[in-house]
């Protein structure tokens, strides 16, 4: 191992310690902001997750050396992350888009239609019998 290499590692070690300290601070911050009322629960959740994401990125970038990795590994992690977001996003979307809203919409329209054309509706009914 060359001296150059040793020097490299030594500068890495400095980074590790700084990141470690940042993570400690981040943890304190997470707890602290959870006691702050941002007005709505959603904002609290968003802030908490934001801090967590920053912390997680620090771990991934510096401790796991993702900041200077090979393309193959970026592709790999990128795809996993993408599909994870797909799974989570689409599942939540599917939940947030229940059918009854559209049904109600149609019902409303139908009511409007019936009111508008009560005459022809009557005609339909008599045909039914």
């Amino acid at each position: 191992m060359s001296a150059d290499h040793d020097h490299d590692i030594k500068s890495h070690i400095r980074t590790y310690l700084i990141i470690g300290a940042a993570l400690f601070v981040g943890t304190v911050l997470t707890v602290a902001v959870s006691y702050v009322d941002f007005g709505s629960h959603a904002i609290n959740v968003a802030v908490g997750l934001l801090i967590a994401t920053v912390k997680a990125s620090l771990v991934a970038l510096f401790f796991m050396h993702l900041i200077s990795e090979k393309t193959a590994i970026y592709l790999l992690i990128g795809s996993a992350f993408f599909f994870f977001v797909g799974l989570m996003g689409l599942t939540i979307w599917a939940d947030k888009n229940p059918p009854n809203r559209t049904q109600n919409l149609q019902l409303e329209q139908k009511v409007a239609v019936t009111e508008g054309h009560s005459h022809s509706e009557d005609g339909d009914h008599s045909n039914d019998h």
Binding site: L87, L90, W93, A94, N97, P98, P99, R101
Partner: peptide, 21 residues
């Protein structure tokens, strides 16, 4: 193939938007 799975679930009561997706 990772983003088509819910075509098995049309009958679970899915909104039109997501079902269109």
């Amino acid at each position: 193939s990772f983003i088509v799975w819910a075509h098995h679930m049309y009958l679970t009561g899915m909104g039109t938007v997501i079902s269109t997706f």
